[in-house]
Design a protein around this nucleic acid. Structure first.
Lengths: 152, 152
DNA sequence: CTTAATTAGTGGCATATGCCACTGTTTGCG
DNA sequence: CGCAAACAGTGGCATATGCCACTAATTAAG
């Protein structure tokens, strides 16, 4: 009487998605924790790493994240010396981001742990299923819900 | 060169899940906004509504959410008079939650908007696909990753 | 070349979530 | 009964995310 105690919200796509995110987030967080990073931070460092000194806007777009939210999330990483920013000399509006040597080391450390989490998860749900699920989630992230106020 | 600008993290199940959650969350939030509620709040009110004056712990368990997190999330709803709590007379440790008349009215209002979002989303991804996705996400939320420190 | 419109970030404010330490209640034992 | 163990929440602190108003830098007009 604990599991199905309170059904119902299983119908809202958004609610179900959030719930799964909380659960999976806790798992990845737990596994990556020994590195001192949250799974979100590990992901952000990785995103920065694979980019070529990406501009904040580019990172935010890639993560489908609000620009200001990215700015906030970046702060603790800058504070801890894993990331640094610098103004693009060709366009001073743009601020680019890169890992510091320390950040790179920390990312390596976190990635080792991440692989464990990733592997464990895929062992549980199946590699195929995981890939299929990722594809579906990617599609959602790429959806184009009505234009907020575009095409003047 | 904007969409696939920064690939990569498309491999992390957790990152992809979070990204989709941000996107879908914004959509549901936008649609439900006219009610003055966030999609998360609408979902929480609904969860409380379908429960029989559920205890906080029961709600947290149903949402796979930390108990303290639930407490925090509940505050603005209590502040705005949509929800009220009371101690269970049979066990004073337990605090039960219920909607106020205002909360019920607000929920109705929000549900109307929610249906629009839900419908629009399902029209875009397909009712079948949405249901399948929800089932997959439910499974994730129900996964039992290793025992934290159980079975002494 | 000035000025208006657009672009890229910042800062403030608010909610969403978690973890941990701590308090009040119950329950289980001896 | 009296105390230790277990349970349910609270508060504080920190990150995750968003929206909005505002500033700085570019670009597009005229």
């Amino acid at each position: 009487m604990s599991k199905a105690a309170l059904p119902g919200l299983t119908l809202c796509n958004n609610a179900v998605l959030r719930r799964a995110t909380r659960k999976l987030g806790q798992f990845y967080d737990d596994v990556v924790a020994p590195s001192g990073l949250k799974a979100t931070q590990q992901g952000l460092l990785y995103q920065i790493h694979i980019g070529d000194e990406p501009a904040m806007g580019a990172i935010a777009a890639a993560l489908v994240m609000d620009l200001s939210a990215l700015g906030h999330t970046l702060k603790p990483l800058i504070r801890d010396g894993y990331v640094e920013t610098f103004t693009d000399p060709d366009d001073r509006r743009i601020k680019r981001v890169r890992l510091t040597p320390q950040g790179l080391i920390k990312l390596d450390e976190a990635m080792k742990l991440w692989r464990v989490a990733q592997q464990r998860f895929e062992d549980m749900v199946g590699k195929e299923h995981a890939a299929m699920l990722r594809a579906a989630l990617d599609d959602i992230a790429a959806l184009d819900f009505g234009i907020p106020s575009a095409a003047t």
